[in-house]
C-alpha cells in the first residue's frame, strides 16, 4: 500500500486533488481511497487529506501517520505544520515551489504549480488552481499513469486548460 498525505490550505483544492488522484489510481485498476480530514477549519486554514493506493482492498480508515509521499500544495503551511511528521525513512516530498527545497534528507521534487496555473489563467475566485496540475507532477513521479491522470481530470472538469496544466507540470517537475 502506498500512502500519500496532501497538505494545503482551505480553498486550494487539496481535497479535490486527493479525489482526482484516487480516481486516477482507480483508472490504473488499483484500489484507492481518498479521505479528507475535515477539521473545524475555514478557508485559508491548513487542510490535510489522505490518499491510499493498493493492489489489495483497503481496510484502513484512520489517518495516514507514516506517508510514503508528502505533497505540499502551499509551502507556507510549513511554517505552522511539520509536514514531514511520521514520513517513512525513504519517503519523498513533492512541493509546489519555483525553487528547489531541501527537506531533511528526503528526496524532494518541486514544481511551480502556481506559476503554471497563473500562466494558463486557471484562476477561480482569485486563487490559482493547483489540484489539476499537481496530478501531472504525480504522474511524472510514477504514482499514477499519465493517461489515467488525464482521464480523471477530464471526468471532473470540462476546461481543457486543466489537462494542459497537468501536462506542463509533468514536463516541469524535477525528478
Amino acid at each position: 500500500m502506498f500512502e500519500i498525505r496532501i497538505h494545503s490550505r482551505g480553498g486550494q483544492g487539496g481535497v479535490t486533488a486527493a479525489k482526482l488522484l484516487a480516481q486516477a489510481a482507480f483508472n490504473d485498476h488499483k484500489y484507492a481511497t481518498a479521505a479528507p480530514f475535515y477539521g473545524a477549519e475555514r478557508r485559508g486554514a491548513p487542510v490535510v487529506s489522505f490518499v491510499r493506493i493498493s493492489d489489495e482492498p483497503i481496510k484502513v480508515y484512520s489517518q495516514i501517520r507514516s506517508p510514503d509521499l508528502v505533497v505540499v500544495l502551499d509551502s507556507s503551511v510549513m511554517d505552522v505544520i511539520d509536514v514531514l511528521n511520521g514520513i517513512k525513512p525513504d519517503g519523498t516530498v513533492l512541493i509546489n515551489s519555483a525553487h528547489a527545497v531541501t527537506m531533511d534528507g528526503h528526496t524532494t521534487h518541486h514544481v511551480d504549480l502556481t506559476g503554471i496555473a497563473l500562466s494558463l489563467g486557471l484562476v477561480v475566485a482569485g486563487s490559482p488552481i493547483l489540484n489539476t496540475p499537481v496530478l501531472g507532477a504525480l504522474a511524472k513521479l510514477g504514482i499514477v499513469s499519465q493517461e489515467s491522470a488525464r482521464k480523471a481530470i477530464r471526468g471532473t472538469f470540462t476546461d481543457e486548460r486543466n489537462v494542459k496544466a497537468a501536462e506542463q507540470a509533468y514536463a516541469e517537475v524535477t525528478v
Binding site: 484516487a22 480516481q23 484507492a32 481511497t33 481518498a34 479521505a35 479528507p36 475535515y38 480508515y61
Partner: peptide, 12 residues
C-alpha cells in the same frame, strides 16, 4: 454510515 470517515471518503 460513519460521518466523514465513510460519508466523505472516496472509494470504488
Amino acid at each position: 454510515l460513519d460521518g466523514f470517515s465513510l460519508s466523505h471518503i472516496t472509494q470504488s
